[in-house]
């Protein structure tokens, strides 16, 4: 009887970690502590616009696959100049295409054993902007503050013309075609997930 009980305990203790490791972890972007920043160059000055994402989630699967989806409103970007922001909304047709969305995956992502720990992640996915969906690769620096809280920062560039955006101009000079997009996210594991 005693040995049967011991066998049960051993089996339970062996099976429990494997069971826990098979769970997908779901994280939500903490919106107040996350932001998207665009940078544009014009002959006369540099333009920097920021916006908070409207929603974002990440799921880390047991096989190390990381799935990420983030969404923001194009009209939310604020460059500190109301006229310029209106011009950007016109150029990006913000009423027709109100959202900018990223959906991507990375592989080989594991929760580190100790915290804090930095994990380089390359997200490969799709950026939807101005009615155009294009493949992008986003190198991210992922900092596991704990098993339940992650800070992720990344930076990549896109071509405005490849997204069919008629580049805005000031004083008859168009902005450069390259738009740099920087992302800063705080992700928190969802309760019970």
């Amino acid at each position: 009887m005693k040995s049967t009980f011991l066998a049960l305990l051993v089996a339970l203790s062996l099976s429990a970690p494997a069971f826990a490791g098979d769970e997908a972890r779901l994280f939500s972007v903490h919106l107040p502590d996350s932001e998207l920043i665009y940078r544009l160059n014009h002959k006369l000055h540099k333009v920097v616009g920021t916006a908070r994402p409207t929603s974002g989630r990440a799921r880390l699967l047991p096989d190390g696959t990381l799935q990420v989806a983030v969404r923001a409103n194009v009209a939310d970007f604020d460059s500190g100049n109301a006229n310029r922001d209106v011009h950007m909304k016109e150029a990006t047709e913000a009423k027709k295409y109100p959202l900018i969305e990223f959906k991507g995956v990375a592989s080989g992502v594991k929760v580190p054993d100790s915290f804090p720990a930095k994990v380089p992640v390359v997200l490969k996915g799709q950026l939807s902007f101005h009615g155009v969906q294009k493949q992008v690769e986003v190198p991210m620096e992922v900092l596991f503050n704990s098993a339940k809280e992650i800070t992720a920062a990344g930076r990549f560039t896109i071509s405005l013309e490849s997204y069919k955006v008629d580049r805005p101009s000031l004083l008859m000079i168009k902005v450069d075609d390259v738009l740099e997009l920087e992302t800063k996210f705080l992700l928190q594991q969802e309760e019970g997930k």
Binding site: S55, G56, R57, A58, R59, Q67, V68, A69, R71, K96, Y97, P98, L99, E101, K103, G104, V105, K124, G125, Q126, S128, G131, V132, Q133, K134, Q135, K164
Partner: peptide, 29 residues
């Protein structure tokens, strides 16, 4: 020219976000 341009890539067959009413532009202006 107005239709969404799509490129293929890694499998993104997952939905983490709630569908948005404004995700897709109207079919006809």
């Amino acid at each position: 020219s107005d239709a969404p341009v799509v490129e293929s890539g890694p499998s993104l067959d997952f939905d983490l976000l709630e569908p948005s009413a404004s995700s897709e532009p109207a079919a006809a202006p």
